[in-house]
């Protein structure tokens, strides 16, 4: 599950100097024609760098994203929910595995990527830095955070890099199943007891601001990424993605009888765009830079898991059997 938006830094003006202009023109013409770029094809350094950055963040988001929901597997109410949640979280980790592998085709090893995650050099979706206090928080993620991720991933699946697009096609198919599961969970809360309804309303109130942050800073303030759009690395602006999400899901939330904690939220019938209170981008920046409610905890879990698993990975490097391959 991945929100994008926070992926890209500004591009320095000299980053394309030194590239062979003929190869660059050919490369751009291929993308223009809708062809996919494959691992062994020529590509500008900047393209490679930005793609690694994006796919890596996506992969990290999958494995860190498994944590806030994962803590509810052992508490999920009833067999049906327990089995579906297990499957869903496992899917996310599996997506991480596929995505790390897609990023590796660009020349960065999974080990390096995980190191960069733990030492804070590489980011993941901001939303996973918020806590899941109740079962309803978990349901919010399963339905709406997944929904947001699908909006973003469907767009990215039309991008230019072959291995990433292929991974995304399958990921999207699986996540639409997650979405169904999440939606069901919320429908049951909505049509359940007062306690259940209150639980979800409270979760919605807590999660709405991070959900609005999910797609990244407003286009007015985010860095310019025209070249990445041209290269089909970034497939839509943050505000477009956010708008698409609101368009699809606000009516569904209202339909279930819940309120959204933003008095200014409404669709402008003339422009077709949603209007809302400007999200607190200062908080967004604070959280992404490490000062959110759960940043330390999430990375600590990853760090401890890596630490405790070190002897296993070392043992795997002594080649004894056929199929277990040392990876991360």
């Amino acid at each position: 599950m991945y929100g994008g938006g926070n992926t890209f830094e500004g591009i320095k003006s000299d980053e394309l100097t030194g590239e062979d202009p003929i190869k660059l023109a050919e490369f751009e013409a291929r993308i223009e024609r809708g062809e996919k770029i494959e691992p062994s094809d020529w590509m500008p350094k900047l393209y490679r760098k930005q793609l690694i950055r994006m796919i890596e963040q996506h992969a990290h988001s999958e494995i860190i994203g498994a944590l806030p929901e994962g803590t509810w597997i052992t508490r999920a109410p009833g067999f049906k929910r327990k089995m579906a949640l297990m499957a869903k979280v496992q899917d996310e980790v599996g997506h991480g595995q596929l995505l790390y592998s897609a990023a590796e085709t660009l020349g960065k090893s999974r080990e390096e990527m995980i190191d960069d995650l733990i030492n804070g050099k590489s980011k993941y979706s901001n939303i996973f830095n918020y806590p899941t206090f109740t079962w309803a928080d978990c349901c919010f993620i399963s339905w709406l955070v997944d929904a947001g991720a699908i909006v973003n991933q469907l767009a990215n699946a039309k991008g230019s890099y072959g291995p990433y697009c292929r991974a995304l096609d399958r990921i999207c198919a699986e996540e639409s199943f997650h979405l169904k599961y999440g939606h069901h969970c919320v429908i049951y809360l909505a049509s359940g007891t007062q306690t259940q309804r209150d639980m979800f309303q409270e979760a919605l109130n807590r999660w709405w601001p991070p959900m609005m942050h999910f797609f990244g800073p407003s286009d007015k303030i985010s860095v310019h990424t025209e070249i990445l759009m041209k290269w089909k690395v970034k497939m839509g602006t943050n505000d477009d993605m956010r708008n698409q999400f609101l368009d699809m899901y606000v009516p569904k939330i209202w339909e279930l009888g819940f309120t959204i904690p933003d008095p200014n939220l409404k669709k402008n019938t003339e422009t077709g765009r949603w209007e809302y209170t400007e999200p607190d981008w200062e908080e967004f920046k604070r959280v992404i830079n490490g000062d959110g409610p759960c940043n330390k905890e999430r990375l600590e879990v990853r760090r401890i898991a890596e630490e405790r698993g070190r002897w296993v990975r070392e043992a795997l490097r002594t080649p004894k059997t056929a199929y277990v391959t040392p990876l991360a």
Partner: peptide
Amino acid sequence: PTLCRAIYYCNNCKE
């Protein structure tokens, strides 16, 4: 990722 699938690596496609 799901119960019914295994993950492989193709040395040819490097994927």
